[in-house]
Design a protein around this nucleic acid. Sequence first.
DNA 1: GAAAATAGTAAAGCAAGCTTGACTAAATTT
DNA 2: AAATTTAGTCAAGCTTGCTTTACTATTTTC
Lengths: 156, 156
Amino acid sequence: MSHDPPTFRHSLNDAKADNVLERLFRCARLLNDEGTRRVAEQTDAPVLRAAHMNLMPHIDLEGTRLTVLAQRLGVTKQAASQLVVDLEKIGVLQREPDPDDGRAKRVVFTDQGRNGLLEGLAILRGLEAELRAEIGDSDIDHLNQVLVKILAFING
Amino acid sequence: MSHDPPTFRHSLNDAKADNVLERLFRCARLLNDEGTRRVAEQTDAPVLRAAHMNLMPHIDLEGTRLTVLAQRLGVTKQAASQLVVDLEKIGVLQREPDPDDGRAKRVVFTDQGRNGLLEGLAILRGLEAELRAEIGDSDIDHLNQVLVKILAFING
DNA sequence: GAAAATAGTAAAGCAAGCTTGACTAAATTT
DNA sequence: AAATTTAGTCAAGCTTGCTTTACTATTTTC
């Protein structure tokens, strides 16, 4: 299994969260479900699983060494390598030699991979647009501001 | 692996989400991490993994049949059963005969299990209290209202 | 009351997502 | 230039979280 940490989306019955955090978790989960559903629907992107998706945000634009990826993911080089191999096979990533170090390689997005990612983000923005149309700009903007504050608190 | 659906928390670099949904996902994830960290710290609860946690919110107060649990989880009875066995072993759940059907059993929380869950929720409320102290009641209340609207939209 | 459906259990198997251990090649240290 | 460290690969093995197949014990249907 993926050794995921436990997730805390519990009231005694899931359906009606009754405090802010549960509601936040539930909301994020449902929107994420909807987003990934749409991505899966539009792009007939194949075998991308959670582990692969988790890898991608750790790849910098200039490319990132495998060892660094592994560190960022908190797994061994071998584990990270396997994911990169998968993504390489379907043309999302490629490895190129690191000009600064003959032992090392840089993992970078292919154009196709980057475009796929941007497409996914566009779908996400589409979902946001629907939300704005339904809920109203002012509420969404306010939500955004509060989230910024919360993130600042968590990181600070 | 756990066959988790992919998760969509991507900008090209994870650290700075730049739209509401990404921010929402990131926020939920970080708060969930912190919540589970605290739960793990306080209660020396043992081997509870994500699969077990996911099971719990589907158990009704009157008890729930295994088949129903399996349906709600979208897995086979055997898969659900294994989780229940685990939770039974550590005293969180128990099976009792279903009075209405001699074949069936009802999966219910033990007192210990229910208390543990309530304790977890209390920790979550503690985290919310900290957030309120830091961010301010009005923002958190507003956040809550917007989340309610969003959930209504998703479900409606 | 015999036949079919349903609730649950038991056991084996499989893929995902890791790990550990053993290795090569290039870089760094001494 | 020899010794050590570092970047990455290869292969085998483990646990988790499922599945499929096979079974027993009740209940429902006819």
